[in-house]
Structure formats: structure tokens, C-alpha cells
Design a protein around this nucleic acid. Structure first.
Lengths: 334, 334
DNA sequence: ACGAGCGCTTACAACGTTGTAGAAACCAGT
DNA sequence: ACTGGTTTCTACAACGTTGTAAGCGCTCGT
């Protein structure tokens, strides 16, 4: 059923290597020989055995993408773009779910299918720069905010600026009691820290006093956490007139909780998120959010990895910043 | 930097095969030999080369999951469960995005990374049973409704029953003008056909006349399609008092469109979906839906595939039906 | 017609691993 | 010490591919 070069060679009456040459597009093969070989390949439905090829070449043509959770829309959308960008390089993407745990992430980084993958695009939550440095084995590109100036290539957006812009937009709407949802004190909370920094910067610029009762922590960034945070804020008597959620799923949860408590969005409370996931374009109301250029992020990551596997093998780590913009929708309109 | 069995063997003063035996947990290795080898493995940070192992064993420990689109929440959630279930078997999952195109699906089925994967879990949209039969090369498990009694193992839920139940629920709420959104006449529309059949069956049981103006096609099953279908229905003067959407993203789009047109859910129009995606638990209003047991579907698929790779290699194709239930929420409450 | 040169093809070895078969070492029990 | 059996270890070959280097045969210029 499954044939090898040898079978094709016998059928075409040539050597194994000649078939290999045809398969690999080697130039110096006589036209009629090539035709005969190709006929045999077609007849036997020959497919190269990649394990063998990899063993020989030391390359697999497979890269891994490791994200915390696949069913978080942001990562799913990102994954789609990475798969597409990788296809342009002729790569297949093996997707790994780390669950955000450091052990899982370490496992991913130290070589999922050891030698099965040529490189890794990792979106780390739990691992620190030091952890990662210890895992230098595999060519790696990091996504997101976790590790700045780490030991590996790195693609991110300017979180502080983005958070500042979206907060300034809420201020521009005349809101003064702006809550921030999603703060985290753990070392994992690098994104949270940056976005919080942007938030406070915008407040400072507008001369609004920082009130830490308006800053709500969220252990994870799921819808349920956003909803819980809003309920806490409102029932504890802090009356925000706007909410900046550190990602869109938090914001969708917040919308839900506000609705349940009879508060109107945006009239009573304006809401803004971060990530621009598809859901936010159809929620009720639609969601104002920071829109990172995911397609660009994915493409940059893949290109950086391609560099690492090729000419830039030993160049110093690079940090690339992808653009973002504000998507103004109903929850905090223009 | 990267070491081989041979390096470990030299350091431990044993043969290559003994190291291999230690790595593979072979029983008959003297305790002190084993200790010496393990010390050497640790010292050199040895990792087996999977390409070589695969070449030798003919197995890769990698299976592929091919779905139409990763950023459709249903598939993302399913993917998460498949990855988890596969991990229990010691497998890694390579995720492939077919985009629902027949060419892509064929490519996936005929061997993504030829010889790189041991088996395939495919959620086909475009391929027919005949197409698939031609691709018998790879052990395969199909998900969903596309191909009944096809040439491969198959996991699904009882779509007709589920659609009948949810429609009956809407009827039970006193609704009589129940729209169905998502019908498709193309061969790709197998799920659509089954769900439509359940819908009509429920109408018939309740003695409600079928009105084909209430049945709206949807080219794809995205939020935008659901929104467009509802707008069409309402502006064309058909006044439904309930809408059964053939999946949840359609339903979320429908909620949005109804909201935009000033219709209240569920008071004016009740809405039900299909899939029980996370979004539907936080939408405004929350979404009544058919909840397939995704975790079970994933586990069954992985187990079937494990069978195919093992003892049941040549047993006839099996069809397994996973359970589902109705999740009653605000959009069409009890 | 002959050798140089080139185009085309091939044999061989190697990539790192494991299955097979058998050798060597060990352990009683006589 | 010797046998028979078991445990522990090893040499060798093979998985399917491609790089190397060399071989063959053709063309062409003289």
C-alpha cells in the first residue's frame, strides 16, 4: 500500500537516487527519464516518508505554536493567522495547548516532539525570562508581553500606549470614574501591568486622581471573571461611569453583568476591551476595543522564526512591535 | 549540543542498545547499569530523536485534527477536548485548518505531513463519502454529519432528534411562527439537512403547517450570516415569533439583528441555537441551545482512532452517537 | 577517430533509532 | 566443577531518505 523510493525506482527502471533527484527537482535528469519516473510515482501514488527525510536532513518542516488555551478567541484567531503565515513558508503548524502552566510551557519549549519540530512560537504566561533562557535549545519566537528583553525573539504590541489611548478615549467621552478590570499582581500578569500603566498614565494626563477602589483584579481573563469583577464593583458601592477591561472576554462578561444589574451601556457605563475578537462585533452592544494587528503579529513571528532557522541563526534577539488601532463601537462610541 | 544514544553509551561505558533499553524502560537492566546510564542521560541532557525513532517504528505518536476553521468557537472548543483526550494516549495533536475546501480536506486526508502522522480526525464539510473512500490510506475518524455510513469510523450526535427537541421546546412556549435559519441545499449541507428534518418533524407533530418562507438559507454559519438572515426575514414581512438557528454563531448574529430592529428576545421573538459555545452563556440574552457533549465526542473519536491503530485495524467502520441535551437559557426560557 | 568535457546516473554510506538473535555473565542445584 | 536456566548485555541489520563521489556514455572540437 505504502511505497518507497525503491519501488518507484524498480518500476521506472532507474536507481533509487535518480527517483530522489526527480522528487527533489534536481536539474540534471534527462527529460524522458524524468517522465518515466514521474509516471511511476503517479502510478504507485508514492509519498516521501518525511521521518526518513527529516532524519537525513535534520529538518522537519513543522513548527509548533504553543498557546495557553485554544478556545480563548484571541488565541484561536491568532492561531489561524499563524497557520496561514506558516503555510507561505511551506511549514505545517503543530498546535500545543499549555494551559498557561509553567510545567506545560517548559515542556513545550524544551521540545514538544523533540526533533519533531524546527522551531517554536510560544505565547508564554507562566515562564520568566530566566526560565526561557535555560531552554535555548530550540529556535523560538515569543508572543506577547511576558518577557521583555528576554533571550529570544519577541513580537508584541505597545500595550502601554494602547491602554493609554483607550482610557483617554473614555475620558474624552466625559467619564471620570473609570474602572480597570483585570489587574494581576502575580509575575504572570505582565500584560496586566502594562495595561494598568497605560490606564494610570491616561488618568494622570487628564488630571484625574487614581482611585484604587476602581481597579479590580481578575485571576483569569475569562468572561466569568469580568462579570464577577463588575458585580463586585457595583455592589460595593463604587459607581463607575466607564470600565476598561484588559481583554475582550472580560469585557463581554462585564457587559453581561451590567445588563443583569440594570445598567445601560454606554449611557450609564461605557465599556472598552482589548483584543478585537470577533464576538465583540456582534455583542449587544458592540464592543469598543483595542485592535492589535493579529495578522501582522503572526506574520512577523513566522518571519522571525524563518530568520532564526536560516541566516540570522546567531544574531542577537530582536523585538518587533506590531501596530494596533482603536475600534470604536457602541459600548463606548465616538 | 544535541547528543545521540552513542554519546550517552560512551559516557556510561555500555552499548548503544543498552541505553536504548533504559530509555524505553526495558526490564532486564541491572540497577547499577541503569543508574549509570541515567546519570549520563541527565549529564548530556539527551533527548531521543523522534524522526529516527519513527522511521524505525513506523509510528510517530502524532495525530492530526482537521477542522474547517479554528476560530469558529465550536471547533476551537472541540479542538481543546481532542488535544486533552489525545494527551491521555500519549499523542500530540497537529491541528490543520481546511477552510472547508474540498482540496484542502483531501490534502489533509491524504496525509498532511505524509508519514508524519499516525491517524486523522477529520471534520469534513466538503468531501463526500466517495471522496473519502478513495483516501483510505490513513486511519481516520470522521466527526459530524457529513457522511453517514461512510467508509470510516464516525462520531456524531443525533441531529434530527436534537433539532426536533429544541423546536418542540419553542412550540411549547406557545410559538407558532418559528423560523429556521441556516438551511443549505449544497451537498456540504448535511448538518443543515438533518437539523431541518428535525425542525419539520417537530412542526408536523404539533400540527403546525410548514411555511417555507420561514426557512432561511445561510451560505456559511457565521454571525454575519445569522444577522443577515434575520434582517431578510423581518424586512420581507414574515413575522416570526421564534427563530431556531442551526448553530450558535448564527444565533448570536440573529440576536444582534433582532436587537438592531428593536425586537425583544424572548418576548417578541424567542431564539435557540445549536452547539452550546461559551459565548452563548454570556450573551444578552443568554442563549438557549442544543448542547452536544463535546468532551465525549472528542474522547470517542480518540478512542476509535486508537482502536484503528491497534487491535481493530480491520474491523468494519463504526458509528458512535454522543449524547446531547437542551440548555435552556434566557433567549427561550423554560 | 580520439580524448576532453560535460551531462546524466549510480553505488555507497550515513542520519539515530530499535528488533532480533545470540553471547556473556550470573545463579542455583547437583 | 558442571549443567541448565535465567538475566543482562551486545553486534548487526534495517527503517527510507539524501549527500558524496565516482562512473558511464554522449557530444564536440580537432
Amino acid at each position: 500500500m505504502r511505497h518507497r523510493l525503491k519501488d518507484v525506482a524498480e518500476r521506472a527502471g532507474v536507481s533509487v537516487k535518480t527517483v530522489s533527484n526527480v522528487v527533489n527537482g534536481y536539474q540534471h535528469v534527462r527529460a524522458d527519464t524524468r517522465a518515466r519516473v514521474e509516471e511511476a510515482i503517479a502510478a504507485l501514488n508514492y509519498r516521501p516518508n518525511l521521518s526518513a527525510r527529516n532524519l537525513r536532513k535534520g529538518r522537519t518542516g513543522v513548527i509548533a505554536l504553543a498557546v495557553p488555551e485554544l478556545d480563548i478567541p484571541y488565541f484561536a484567531e491568532l492561531a489561524r493567522h499563524v497557520v496561514t503565515a506558516a503555510a507561505d513558508q511551506g511549514w505545517t503548524v503543530l498546535i500545543d495547548q499549555t494551559g498557561g502552566g509553567s510545567e506545560q510551557e517548559r515542556k513545550a519549549a524544551s521540545g514538544i516532539g523533540d526533533h519533531m519540530i524546527d522551531g517554536l512560537i510560544l505565547s508564554p504566561l507562566a515562564l520568566s525570562a530566566d526560565d526561557l533562557a535555560a531552554l535555548a535549545g530550540l529556535p523560538m519566537v515569543l508572543l506577547g508581553e511576558r518577557v521583555d528583553h528576554g533571550p529570544a525573539d519577541h513580537v508584541m504590541i505597545d500595550n502601554v500606549a494602547a491602554a493609554r489611548e483607550v482610557t483617554a478615549h473614555l475620558i474624552g467621552l466625559g467619564r471620570r470614574r473609570i474602572a480597570a478590570i483585570g489587574s494581576q499582581r502575580t509575575p504572570e500578569g505582565a500584560s496586566a501591568r502594562l495595561r494598568l500603566a497605560g490606564y494610570t498614565a491616561a488618568l494622570a494626563e487628564a488630571g484625574i486622581a487614581y482611585d484604587d477602589r476602581l481597579v479590580a483584579p481578575a485571576p483569569a481573563w475569562h468572561r466569568a471573571d469580568g462579570a464577577a469583577a463588575v458585580r463586585n464593583l457595583v455592589t460595593s458601592g463604587v459607581r463607575p461611569d466607564a470600565v476598561f477591561c484588559f481583554n475582550d472576554t472580560l469585557a463581554l462578561g462585564a457587559l453581561r453583568a451590567l445588563h443583569e444589574m440594570g445598567l445601560r451601556v454606554p449611557e450609564d457605563v461605557a465599556v472598552a476591551g482589548f483584543d478585537d475578537i470577533e464576538d465583540g462585533r456582534f455583542s449587544i452592544p458592540t464592543l469598543t476595543t483595542v485592535a492589535p494587528d493579529k495578522e501582522r503579529i503572526a506574520r512577523l513571528a513566522v518571519e522571525l522564526l524563518a530568520g532564526r532557522l536560516g541566516p540570522d541563526r546567531d544574531s542577537p534577539p530582536r523585538e518587533l512591535v506590531a501596530p494596533h488601532h482603536l475600534a470604536l463601537r457602541e459600548s463606548a462610541p465616538l
